[in-house]
Structure formats: C-alpha cells, structure tokens
Simulated scan of single mutants.
Amino acid sequence: MPVPAATRRYLRKALRGTLGLAIGAMTAFAEFFYVLFGGLALAIPALREPVFAGAHVLSEVERQRLEKYFGDRNTILYDERRAMVYLIPRCVVGLLSAGIFVMILLGTGSGVIITYQLFNGQSPGGGAPADWYDPITTALFGALLIFLSLQGLLGAATLDRKLARRFFGPSKQEKLRRRVSALATSRAEVVEAVNGERRRIERDLHDGVQQRLVALGMLLGRARRTGDPDHASDLLRQAHEESQRALEDLREVSWRVYPIALDSDGLHPALEALAERSGVPVHLRVDLPERPPAAIETVVYFVASEAVTNTIKHAAASRIDIEAERDEVGVRVRITDDGVGGALASGGGLSGLARRVAAADGRFIVRSPPGGPTVVTAVLPCG
C-alpha cells in the first residue's frame, strides 16, 4: 500500500528536524567550552574583540543550521556581544538535546537486550524464567519511554528555535521595513489586478456584447430596406432573438464584473449560483458560521469563479468540488477538479488570482501534477 504524500512530507520533515537537532547537540560541546574559556578571556581587554568575533562565528553556524533543517529565517544582522550572550543558553539547550539522544541510544540498546531475553523465555535482566505479564509490562514501559523521548526531542527543538528567534529575530526596524516592502508589493499587485480585470471586461464586451449589437443593427437595417413583408418579419424575428442573446451576454459580463448576490445574499448563494451556471457538475460545501467581511467574500468568490472557468476551458474535468470554510487562520477556499492537471500558477488566470489574494494578505497555492487532480487553495486572514 503506497504511503500518502502528506505522510511522506511529514516524515521527511521529522527526519530533517531530528538531524538538525543532533547536529546542534554536537556543536553544543564546542560552544560550552568556548563560553567557559571565552568568558574567562573576557577579563583581558586585548582578547575581548577576538572572543566576541568567535562567538559571532559560532552563532552564525547555529543560525544557518536552524534555517537549513527547520526553515527558520532569522536576521543576519546582530551584534557580536549579543551572539556571546546567545551562546550561554544555547549550549545548555544543546547539551540537553545531547542527553536526550544518549538516553534514546541507551534505551534502544536495553530494549534490544530485553526483547532477546523474552524470546528466549527469560525474565528481563536474565536468570529466572519469564512470567506471563513480563512481555505486557515491557511493552507498556517501552511505549511510555518512546513517547517521552519523542516529547523530549520536540521540546528541545522548540526551545532551540524560540531561543534563536529571541536573539536573532527581526528588530522593530526590520519588521517595519518588511511590512513597508510587503505593502508596496501588495499595492503593485492590486494595480495589476485591476488593470487585468479592466482588460478582461473590455475583451468580453468587445468579443461578446459588441458583436451581438452589431449583428442586431445589421438585421434591423436589412428589415428596413426589404420590400417583402414576410422577409422583413423573419428578419425582425432574428433581430429579436439576437437582442435576447445580447442581453444574456450582458448579464454574463455584469455577473463576472460583480455578482449582485454577494451584496444582497452573501457568499453561499453567490457560490450556489456559480455552481448552477457551470457546464461541469459542481459539488459545493460551505461551512461559514458567520458571514465574512465583504472584501473577503469578494476575493473568495472570484477565486472560485476563475478556477471554475479555467477548469471548464482547459482541464477536461467531469467534476469540480468547491469547499469554503472558516479555520483558525481565516477563510479557506479550495477548488478541486479531476481533470488532466498541469495547471501553472504563473498562467494568466491563476497569476491574476494570486495577485488578488496577495493584495488581501492571503496565501495562494496551486497543486496540479500531470494527470491531476488540480487543487487551488486560497487562505485569507479574517479577524
């Protein structure tokens, strides 16, 4: 039975984190002796600068380790004195991690020996024959020790990361700079998204409604010029049908610009109307105990609408699932289809959605392996 992709990703992340913690446990010994002897050397003024410089080198090793194995991106701009102070609690956490690894190795060795003795009919520790409850007791204690060992590793990793964030985390100025940069990028994305919408509306009007109206005008002109009453009646009938089609196209364009159901009824009825108008069967699930803000509803609707449109045009799908729910982060909308896959987040429609979601400080994710399924997810923060 194949292992699910989510499980494989979790196992890889756990193994990578364990390796990073083990490396940190080994570097803790060097840091302990450096703090011990370096602290004594600080009493000599001439040695202070080299000691602080060495502390910066060791701290940089730790910062890069956390970034590589845990994905923590901390600032590279920090004072050398701060690096020396960081090494004091850091070596304690590292030695604690080393102690946990040693206990795991000893426990593993003891478990192998006890298991061997039980299979040979001996009680744990050897000697007397095993009682009936010895395997059960050994299994329960073994499970308890494994649980405690895993909790110890998780706790040590959490302490390691929090300690680094405390000393290497971005300063207030760095946070402000990042926020200004994010706002500038968001503003540019909003402008680009608006321009993209304007171009799409113009294209829909030019290729749809305008062509219908031109055809209507030609039919009416022919009806005026003809001298045959029967022919004129037939042309007027065609003109009437063409006017109905033009009205339908105009309704479609106005719905794509902004569905009035969003204002009057909310997100759920708007998504239901989207599902009814789709040429591919759409299965809708909405779990929103409270109505989100209007700006969030608008983004969620257009993400679903554009994803459904792309699926109908390009995916050759037979089913579309739309899920909108509220979680601890905000409002999450997920659109899944069983089409051919291969959709690119950098494509015209999806890149426009990514800009629209980014403008609302949200996250936009596209997973579309060849052969499908395609999953488009948007997570929008909602207070």
Rank of each mutant, 00 (worst) to 15 (best):
A5G: 05
L288V: 02
G126V: 04
G339H: 06
V61G: 07
A164T: 08
I23G: 07
V61Y: 08
H56G: 15
L247T: 10
P124I: 00
I114G: 00
Y258D: 13
E248C: 06
E62P: 04
K68F: 11
S171Q: 10
G169N: 06
E197C: 08
L77F: 14
V92I: 14
Y301M: 08
F364D: 02
A354Q: 04
P89H: 05
G227Q: 08
H206W: 11
A360G: 02
L274N: 03
G383K: 04
F147L: 12
R166F: 15
D263E: 15
S346R: 12
Y69R: 02
R319N: 09
A182G: 05
F168E: 05
H283N: 10
V303H: 05
A316K: 09
L262D: 08
L36N: 11
F29R: 11
E248Q: 14
A184R: 14
D160G: 07
G109P: 01
A46S: 12
F70S: 03
R356Y: 04
T158G: 00
R200Q: 11
G342L: 04
V92P: 03
V3P: 07
G39R: 00
A193W: 00
Q117D: 02
Y34E: 01
I100D: 02
A14S: 03
A345R: 15
V357R: 06
I335F: 03
L183P: 03
G372N: 00
G125F: 06
H268E: 11
K13G: 09
R277L: 11
L15P: 00
F52N: 04
R355C: 02
G352P: 03
P124F: 03
D263Y: 13
I260N: 15
I114K: 02
L140S: 11
R9K: 14
G99M: 13
R179C: 01
I100C: 10
T158A: 08
R367A: 09
P259D: 06
G155W: 01
R90S: 13
D321T: 06
G152S: 07
V286G: 09
V300A: 13
A273Q: 15
H231I: 11
G111M: 12
V190A: 11
G121E: 05
R198Y: 13
F32A: 15
A41T: 05
D204C: 04
T298E: 15
L154S: 08
R166S: 12
F141Q: 10
L274C: 01
D79P: 06
A130M: 08
Q117V: 05
D249A: 13
